[in-house]
Design a protein around this nucleic acid. Structure first.
Length: 357
DNA sequence: GACTCAACCTGTAGTTAAGC
DNA sequence: GCTTAACTACAGGTTGAGTC
């Protein structure tokens, strides 16, 4: 069976199904330039399409649609005329939308997508914190006040867990609020049947979750950068400036100057995954050139840390600080080939002090 | 202010190795 | 040969820093 026939069979039979595909097109960055994040542009597009329809009631529907498509094209080209690198993608969006906007129903679906899917999702996403800091700062301080350096691993884990839970709770509240509002709108204003309503509401939820998930990833990374800064500040360890012109293959969050004048880079990540390959491509000679003594990696999730990663990076003067109760740490500290490259997280501050005092 | 770009992370699919 | 575990690489929206 041909692929097109299979797709045709799988296709959902609802005139509103394109709500999902329009949402995808509006937010896809790689393919279409992600214009759907701009609320004011979406509002202008939706109202322009409405006005054209109401002002041309005597014209044929084909003529109205032609006018609407032209207006959409002009709005987008004008808005992004200066965005050189995005323009190709915007033009592709215009081309692909032109072939999807054929009937008045298509236009109505597109308007509903702009006004009642994209804008509420944008607002909901914006209401979710981009950073866990608000949820965690005071609790983390309390832990360090009471437990000192022994509380370090707990603080990092709490920072991770509590922040995630706080933000997920906000996400839940946002999706429920926006979902309810959309459901009411579809029942009261659009008088849409149950199945069609399901088609629209699930599009909304899918797209919200996709974007919230990406925000979660971004947030997880930036929060861990905050935790190292917080810890260094708390223990009054002075940060140093990054070496000029040093381009690390992996982001170094903080720098500390050791007593011999060399630098220690500190990188805090949740996991290394495949990004370690970028690091390993850098020879340790480059570190010496920039007077970098070591790179300390603080990892909160180390299950994917293989022996290969530890030895390869360890050879390039990278040291891993892992949670004290970690299985990987336990394995590595008892292994002759690995033990030099791993340290328990509770010794992080002590090690830094030895280097700096 | 608008735009560009690199880094962020994690679920998942694909590949390879180990164990039976 | 089959199953399971371990490892590797990718996708892709969000973010924040840098540039104009």
């Amino acid at each position: 069976m041909k692929t097109n026939d299979t797709l045709e069979k799988l296709k959902i039979k609802s005139k509103w199904e394109n709500v999902y595909w329009f949402s995808r097109m509006l937010i896809s960055n790689d393919k279409y330039g992600s214009i759907g994040k701009d609320n004011s542009l979406l509002a202008v597009i939706a109202s322009s399409l409405r006005i054209i329809e109401s002002e041309n009631k005597s014209s044929s529907s084909n003529d109205i649609i032609a006018l609407q498509k032209m207006a959409l094209k002009n709005l987008l080209l004008n808005r992004f005329k200066k965005a050189k690198s995005r323009l190709d993608r915007i033009q592709r969006l215009i081309r692909d939308l032109e072939s999807e906007l054929i009937t008045p129903d298509d236009i109505n679906t597109f308007i509903l997508t702009c006004e009642s899917i994209m804008i509420p999702i944008n607002q909901a996403i914006e209401n979710i914190p981009s950073n866990d800091k608000d949820f965690t700062l005071s609790i983390a301080t309390s832990y360090l006040d009471i437990q000192g350096e022994n509380g370090l691993a707990t603080v990092i884990n709490i920072w991770d867990d509590l922040g995630v839970k706080g933000c997920l709770t906000v996400e839940r509240n946002e999706i429920i609020r926006a979902f309810s509002a959309l459901r009411l709108l579809l029942s009261n204003d659009y008088k849409i049947e149950d199945f069609d309503k399901d088609v629209i509401l699930t599009s909304f939820v899918q797209e919200f979750e996709r974007r919230a998930a990406q925000k979660r990833k971004s947030r997880a990374g930036s929060s861990l950068e905050d935790v190292t800064t917080f810890i260094l500040d708390y223990f009054k360890i002075k940060s140093a400036k990054a070496p000029a012109h040093f381009q690390a293959d992996i982001e170094i969050d903080n720098w500390v100057k050791s007593k011999d004048g060399w630098l220690i880079g500190i990188s805090c990540k949740r996991t290394l995954r495949e990004r370690w390959k970028q690091v390993s491509s850098a020879e340790s000679g480059i570190l010496s050139k920039f007077k970098i003594k070591n790179v300390y990696h603080i990892l909160t999730f180390d299950e994917d840390l293989s022996d290969d990663k530890i030895t390869l990076l360890g050879n390039h003067r990278h040291i891993f600080y892992l949670p004290d109760n970690s299985r990987i740490l336990n394995h590595a500290v008892n292994h002759i080939g690995l033990k030099e490259y791993v340290r328990p997280m509770s010794l992080f501050i002590e090690d830094l002090r030895k280097e700096t005092n």
